[in-house]
Design a protein around this nucleic acid. Structure first.
Lengths: 195, 195, 195, 195
DNA sequence: AATGAATGAGTTTTCATTCAT
DNA sequence: AATGAATGAAAACTCATTCAT
């Protein structure tokens, strides 16, 4: 089997195992066995446990960011809803990936950097949205309020996504609608607060 | 040293260590050394590593819930703001405790149950708030929307609290104000959505 | 079994195993099994494989140096012969120790430092002997010649000792006599060379 | 690249790596990478790690012996000095080779045999020199004294050579002179001892 | 003639946990 | 009531070696 193919299939398994057990409890032995390869292959391809994890996070986080950015480049009016849709689509399609990204957000060492960067980019986007909102005459929101509220909005989405993972009977469209509503309301409220 | 006193000081140390390194990387050796007792003491008092952790979570989560419940029993008009204040006070006073509770929220085995229960009670409270909101004539919010939005609101608070932990220069009052604004806006938006 | 006793018996076994197989091929598993303890004991007492080795070398090298120094503090006339006797006694009594000290002399990483220090002290002594020899009127030997010849003399002794280890039928007294003769001759020759 | 050429360049690399790290810590991976060939090539050419090592030692030890033998076949009067010169020339030109030969002298398994043979031949030569010395009327030296002293003389040379490797500022001629002086003095002394 | 892909067996090290005193 | 001594089990990682192409 050629290397790139193997690499992808190993990453898939690694994501499943890490999503299931967390980084610390995910053993290389288990990943190797489930991937149908020997442990030395994991090390030949990824160098270390951390290397394997980082490769997975880069692949998965990279795709999430790419999709959000694309959705964000659409027409102003529908942008928010499209970005939210895209986010929920990603969660739906990559349950493991999302679980890993989200779980390791709260872990300090030694991998937080990678994941934190992905999230930071998203928070920054939301913050820009908050700060730009008032440009048409309304009051304007500035740091640190814009930062805090952006964090809150992103956190709301994460939490909602996790809840949704356990409720497959709920339609994505509904979830997106709630989240979009909350976001719009939060933006409005934040901008009116100082006034 | 009488047992209850020693137990409390051990729990304090355990919280610090677990907040610092996470449950898996927190070793009993380290906890024993920092607490100034021998390892067999830890086992005599708490039975196992999991037992020690559960004791810590019960104590810490219990206090969080107690404080929120008390704040929630106050007058209707200021209730939301008081609860939020109480929550942020707790985070401020128990950085380790909050970090542990929050971090382990996303961990599956073997301790999630305990922590999840604490959070579930909070989410349920918020949900009741959402569902009761309309009782005075407005449209009413029902599950699963009320559940999802409650999750989102709680998630927003968690995220905001974590962000705030890294920004000690921001006043608690401001954070509380933003969060209260977001929550009220979200409730209003959610109730108007179906109409 | 109290710790100091255990430590000594572990060190004895470690010396035997390392003398037998060399540092790299000596496995902690094997040392633990032969010492009748579990591997974690080795780590509890010595920290690491290197730590165990260093402890052994310190103990053994320390004793060698102590004995040589004592013998060296005797009356001038018989000093050389006494030191040589003491050295050969040590080799006879600590075959493992000598083998380890000698073998690891030629190893670069990561342990050479310790052993090299022991040897360096001995070489320095011989060098001082060489340089002081001429003080009664003969020509005097100086660096780098004194250094080189000291190295040669020490090397001759090491080599002789190793050869002797494989020839238990040869009396220690004879070996000592040969070595003393060689050393005296070498000193004389070295001092006359420049003249 | 024709096989013999490649073989030689592989051996050169192997020598460098083994001199640097020792046999056990020298990995086939590293040798293959530095030699610019794939690992299966190493096995096709040399059969095993041990095979590669043996090939290196045979080549290097063979050259050392050849040079010493040639120098030894010269006129009686200058023989000793020529042999010593040749030895030091070899060390100077083949630092890696000498390091490997010397280092592995003290290693027991699994390669000592090869290296030990090379050294044994040299010791035997010196011994013959010692035993023949007295043929012109002086007292004669016999085993085991001749063996022991020969070992000592060879060991002195090895030790001197190693010391010299770290002192490139010292002229070869000086080193050779010291060593020749020591050797002649040792021979004389050994022959006079019994008398 | 040459190599990318692959592994069985072994290494050092750590950890939660218990026993004898 | 308290601990020094001790361990079974499992972790991450490495290496010499081979096969299929």
């Amino acid at each position: 089997m050629p290397r790139p193919v193997r690499e992808r299939s190993i990453l898939d398994v690694a994501g499943r195992v890490v999503a299931d057990a967390g980084y610390d409890r995910a053993s290389m032995d288990r990943i190797a066995k489930l991937a149908g390869v020997s442990k030395p292959m994991l090390y030949a391809y990824f160098g270390s446990k951390e290397g394997l994890y980082v490769a997975y996070v880069k692949r998965t986080g990279g795709e999430l960011v790419r999709r959000l950015v694309e959705a964000d480049s659409s027409d102003q009016g529908v942008r928010l809803r499209l970005v939210i849709d895209e986010f929920l689509c990603f969660v739906e399609q990559h349950r493991d990936g999302w679980t890993v990204l989200y779980r390791e957000l709260t872990t300090r060492r030694p991998l937080a950097e990678q994941v934190a960067q992905v999230r930071a980019r998203i928070v920054a986007d939301v913050r820009r949205m908050l700060e730009g909102y008032g440009s048409d005459g309304f009051s304007e929101l500035r740091a640190p309020a814009s930062e805090g509220v952006a964090e809150a909005i992103v956190g709301a989405g994460e939490s909602l996504a996790n809840w949704w993972l356990g409720r497959p009977d709920v339609a994505r469209d509904d979830v997106a609608e709630w989240y979009a509503g909350l976001t719009r309301a939060a933006i409005t409220a934040a901008n009116q607060a100082p006034g």
